[in-house]
């Protein structure tokens, strides 16, 4: 048996359940009004050096507005959960330029690629440079790490990772089942310092509804110490109470509620608008040319005050209407 019994990858966060309980003991459960701007939410709840996680699935129901604001505010030395991350990761990589370092450590299950669209040149530059410390995982292993946190446990066992270099470069450990004596990979609980999740509806207190697949957001919301919600729409608390079975995230998980219409753009938002393949392709293309990329970031992120201006620059309501027709299959998607 020449496999390691312990992965050699770095463990970036403390999996202690008691440390987490001490934090949650102090976290407010009150139904207070948490509405604020994205700018204020990022200023208040994202600190340099934090461990950050992003909800959704890379180009689907992502909190683009929060990712842009983190880059705009030049946050530094963040750790990041690279769990099914594609365009969200690509945006954050814009902060690792000209000697500045937004990302310093990444738990990597899926990074640098945008699925069938190809690899991001900027994300590759950042991840091949050696300036970011990496720990390898699989998507499900990361989901299980969040589940352990949700359960208030320091770890959970799983049957993925076993026998591979992904295990060897992870921070997982091999354990033996006390009942069946089979080998399992124990993965440590992950309690992100702060996460951003985009939802369809939220009330002022942060009770949220998500339509469609939830990916890992049910668990991410509960595992995160602080949570910024961006929402397509604010609804009343009465509406939430009339259909409590529709709530995905309860308010006591949430620290900030930001109303951001089209907040997943250029990503897909189920039932609302499809992904803007034209604009995503522009990102991938412009990253090849350093000068053009600088101008692009200036135009779309650093040079605008808010996400609303960015959506305007990308074609505004007219473009969104086209993407809405694609989403609703009113015409066959032309994609890229």
């Amino acid at each position: 048996m020449n496999e390691p019994t312990s992965g050699t990858g770095p463990l970036f966060t403390n999996p202690s359940a008691d440390e987490a309980r001490a934090f949650y003991r102090e976290k407010s459960r009150r139904l207070t009004d948490k509405i604020m701007s994205v700018k204020d939410a990022v200023t208040r709840f994202v600190n340099d050096g934090d461990y950050l996680a992003s909800g959704g699935f890379g180009t689907n129901r992502i909190s683009t507005a929060v990712m842009h604001e983190i880059v705009r505010q030049k946050k530094r030395n963040l750790m990041f959960a690279g769990h099914t991350t594609t365009h969200d990761f690509q945006i954050l990589c814009a902060g690792n330029r000209n000697g500045e370092k937004l990302l310093s450590r990444v738990d990597s299950a899926y990074i640098v690629g945008l699925e069938a669209r190809g690899l991001s040149p900027q994300a590759r530059r950042v991840m091949q440079s050696g300036e970011v410390e990496i720990c390898e995982w699989s998507n499900y292993a990361m989901a299980v790490r969040l589940r352990a946190a949700v359960m208030g446990l320091p770890y959970l066992p799983t049957r993925c990772l076993l026998g591979t270099d992904t295990f060897a470069r992870s921070a997982a450990k091999m354990v033996e089942c006390p009942f069946t004596h089979t080998r399992l990979a124990a993965v440590p609980a992950l309690y992100p310092d702060v996460s951003a999740i985009h939802v369809h509806e939220s009330d002022r207190f942060g009770n949220c509804r998500i339509h469609g697949i939830t990916i890992a957001d049910f668990d991410l919301a509960r595992a995160s110490k602080r949570l910024i919600i961006t929402t397509e729409r604010i609804i009343s608390n009465d509406e939430i109470r009339n259909r409590p079975d529709a709530t995905t995230i309860p308010a006591y998980c949430v620290d900030a509620v930001c109303e951001v219409r089209y907040g997943s753009y250029p990503g897909n938002m189920p039932g609302e608008y499809f992904s803007d393949e034209r604009h995503l392709k522009e990102w991938l293309t412009v990253e090849r040319d350093e000068q053009a990329y600088d101008a692009f970031l200036q135009k779309y992120i650093h040079g605008v005050a808010s996400f609303e201006q960015y959506v305007e620059l990308c074609g505004g309501k007219k473009r969104i209407e086209e993407l809405r027709a694609e989403e609703l299959l009113e015409k066959r998607g032309k994609g890229a």
Partner: peptide
């Protein structure tokens, strides 16, 4: 689908669930 998480991947599905449930 363009992405394994886009809206097409649960079009007329029997359930829109989570990654944990699938895996």
């Amino acid at each position: 689908p363009i992405s394994v998480g886009d809206s097409r991947t649960f079009h007329r599905a029997i359930m829109a669930t989570s990654m944990g449930d699938i895996m």
